[in-house]
Nucleic acid binder design. Structure first.
Lengths: 254, 254
DNA sequence: AATCTAGCTTTGTCGGACAAACCGATAAGA
DNA sequence: TCTTATCGGTTTGTCCGACAAAGCTAGATT
């Protein structure tokens, strides 16, 4: 057993980290609200009593974490971390861990089903009209794999949004970012692929309109199974989401 | 339609960002493998032809992103981003977006069910013995809410691990980090709360052993419904995961 | 051979400097 | 009068040089 400690553990965190932590605390605690300015670098230098280089290193940490950003004039302000940016990091992590498409597929199935269930229960009229708008645009590009794939990804984002569950929105994002870019390859490689995709979306939207959960789940399953069948024609589910594919998705995002 | 551009979009990214991007590319592409050294700051200064301050800012970006870390002697090396670290960031984002416990509960229900289904299908003997070990330790501290809550969180992490699905492991982590800290409050506030929790874990482990998916799902549902009932005794599901709670969870993690 | 010590390296921090971009306000032009 | 040009004053991005502390290395000592 440890004897009662005589001294507190002394803090050896480097200064830039302390700067970052201090600012982070203020934002997390709500003392600095999203959108409010943090102050100039010079002001931070004076407040913390450290060098500007040190302040700048701390700022980089927070900037990368999405807690602060620079507005149009490059001044610092607090902000709400965007799911999307963080999800990109996570997707990258998944790549490096060499996850397989099977893992991606299984998890996406779970999350998309949950997503549609939520949407059926709680979609607002605005959500529905966004989905309808997406569907209309999809129907127009049914023969263009690249455009259709992009709209497909958007459709599923909109459905997650319609679920009114932000935790779910966040949870599905990393997998979706890796999952949906393959849609283009699949739609392009399967006869009637585009038509089947739009058809599935149409039934999904219909299910949401009619508040028919069973139909929503059914068509989500079919939709993803279609993806899976298409995918297995061009690659193995058990291959890892490779670096090569990563480069592809990566270049497209830039 | 846009006319064919005469000039390429000129690159205005600041130097530290380019440094970060360049190193990131090497890691993502696998030219630098996790564990391999990046080189000293001085070497990077020479290679990139920029000042050390600039290099250091770039390094901070990557460090925060989890792509590089400093080993025991503070030398830079590439590394696999830890889910846990990234998930912490996501949890923080969820807090700032003021998500409610209802959203957290709903999503966790989905993910934990998926998790147990995977575990029933694919748990290895090692997974099972880890779970058994956790269960044994839990039984010993059934009357100590803090210790039991920690073991509960670990149990669910182990179950996700047993699912052999790393995407799922990652997806459930952010919600779990916010969800499970409340267990302590709940177990402490409900008579027989600890006993019910251990009982549920026992049935879950048993279901995994017998490869009985229905039982696994059933007991996961019961387990989480227990949490929900306990939670509703002390707070409303529709209140946001507040800053005050955040501070609590935050302080405990440090 | 094991240990100690001195020197070299590397990181974390500091101070100061300067060009470029940005802001605000004033002056010049239609 | 409304727009445009100009001109300081700020602020950021980058650079240079410096130094203490901690780690590493290799020779010196026991």
């Amino acid at each position: 057993m440890a004897s009662t400690p005589l001294f507190r553990r002394i803090d050896v965190a480097p200064a830039y980290q302390k700067v970052a932590d201090a600012i982070e605390r203020e934002i997390i605690n709500g003392r600095i609200k999203p959108g409010e300015p943090i102050g100039t670098e010079q002001q931070l230098v004076e407040q913390f009593g450290v060098n500007r280089s040190t302040v700048r290193e701390g700022i980089r940490v927070l900037e990368e974490g999405g807690l602060i950003r620079r507005d149009s004039s490059r001044r610092l302000q607090a902000c709400l971390p965007r799911y999307n940016k963080l999800a990109t990091r996570l997707s990258r992590a998944l790549i490096l861990h060499e996850v397989t498409f099977r893992e991606l597929f299984e998890t996406s199935m779970t999350l998309e089903v949950a997503s549609v269930e939520g949407a059926v229960e709680r979609a607002t009229n605005e959500n529905i009209s966004e989905l309808a708008d997406n569907l209309a645009r999809s129907a127009e590009v049914v023969e263009k794999p690249a455009a259709l794939a992009e709209l497909d990804a958007e459709f599923h984002v909109l459905m997650a949004k319609a679920s009114q569950n932000r935790v779910l929105q966040l949870a599905r994002e990393p997998a979706a970012q890796l999952f949906f870019p393959t849609t283009e390859m699949i739609v392009g490689g399967v006869a009637e692929g585009g038509a089947r995709l739009v058809e599935a979306h149409r039934h999904l939207l219909d299910a949401i309109r009619r508040r028919d959960k069973a139909a929503g789940v059914l068509w989500t399953r079919r939709h993803l199974q279609d993806w899976r069948r298409g995918f297995e024609k061009i690659a193995s589910l058990d291959r890892s989401v490779e670096h090569t594919y990563m480069e592809h998705a990566y270049a497209a995002r830039q």
